[in-house]
Design a binder for these strands. Structure first.
Length: 219
DNA sequence: CATAGGATTTGCT
DNA sequence: GCAAATCCTATGC
């Protein structure tokens, strides 16, 4: 799904359509995967994971954040892909409003130039994380189980055929240290070099260091 | 029925 | 670097 467009246009969360390109994902398998919610088996919560592919599995973490998966295996077999980051494409103003104007971005803009630069940089990170992605696109558990193939409310669009295949980087999944041997599986995938990644991949040079390495002033 | 802890983000030190 | 915010799910008695 890397490179695909995720589009949200829901009359229940008005303001117009918003959309972004998926740049980071994680794969979660069935009950054998100790990092997957499916390890609990088929329950009320995990039911969408065991359902038909192409549907959403939206859950709440830490009591306050929504995260969204795309179910990917056949009915009866749990399997899903967590969407961890999107790069905003349209509806950016609405995404900004949903995320709330950050104090840092608001306080920084003394000049036109610096404010627009800061704004562009922070806009790129509006969907840089599984919970940020959901907040920016207005995805809540109301859409748990939603059929993503209907082309309404919330859906996916394939990239244009002329679009070059993204260079993909791989690493272990985030926040699953409790999962024993499953914690180290390299099932996190990202578009190399995207400014919207939730965090760097192992061995990847952080963005701040990249500019220094290219000859920028490292302070 | 009670309780532990989480596929995160943010702000402060 | 660290802890708080906050609620639902799963699990155990």
């Amino acid at each position: 799904m890397l490179g695909c467009l995720l589009i949200s246009d829901d009359s229940a969360t008005p303001g117009g359509p918003t959309g972004g390109v998926i740049v980071e994902t994680e794969a979660y398998a069935g009950p054998e995967d100790q990092a997957s919610h499916a390890r609990a088996g088929l329950t009320r919560r995990t039911a969408p994971m065991f359902g038909a592919p192409g549907h959403a599995y939206v859950y709440l973490v830490y009591g306050m954040h929504s995260c969204m998966n795309v179910v990917g295996d056949q009915p009866g077999r749990a399997g899903a892909v967590l969407l961890r980051a999107v790069e905003p494409v349209f509806g950016v103003e609405l995404m900004r409003a949903r995320r709330g104007v950050s104090v840092a971005a608001r306080a920084s803009g003394s000049t036109q130039a610096s404010s627009s630069v800061r704004s562009a940089a922070s806009d790129a990170r509006l969907g840089a994380g599984p919970a940020r992605l959901c907040q920016a696109l207005g995805v809540t558990r109301r859409l748990d189980g939603h059929d993503l193939t209907l082309g309404a409310q919330l859906w996916l669009a394939a990239p244009h055929v002329a679009e070059p295949l993204p260079h993909v980087v791989v690493g272990p999944r985030i926040g699953v240290a409790y999962a024993g041997e499953w914690a180290g599986r390299p099932w996190r995938f990202g578009v190399a070099g995207s400014p919207a990644l939730s965090r760097p991949f192992p061995g990847e040079m952080p963005a701040a260091r990249v500019s220094a390495a290219r000859g920028g002033n490292a302070r």
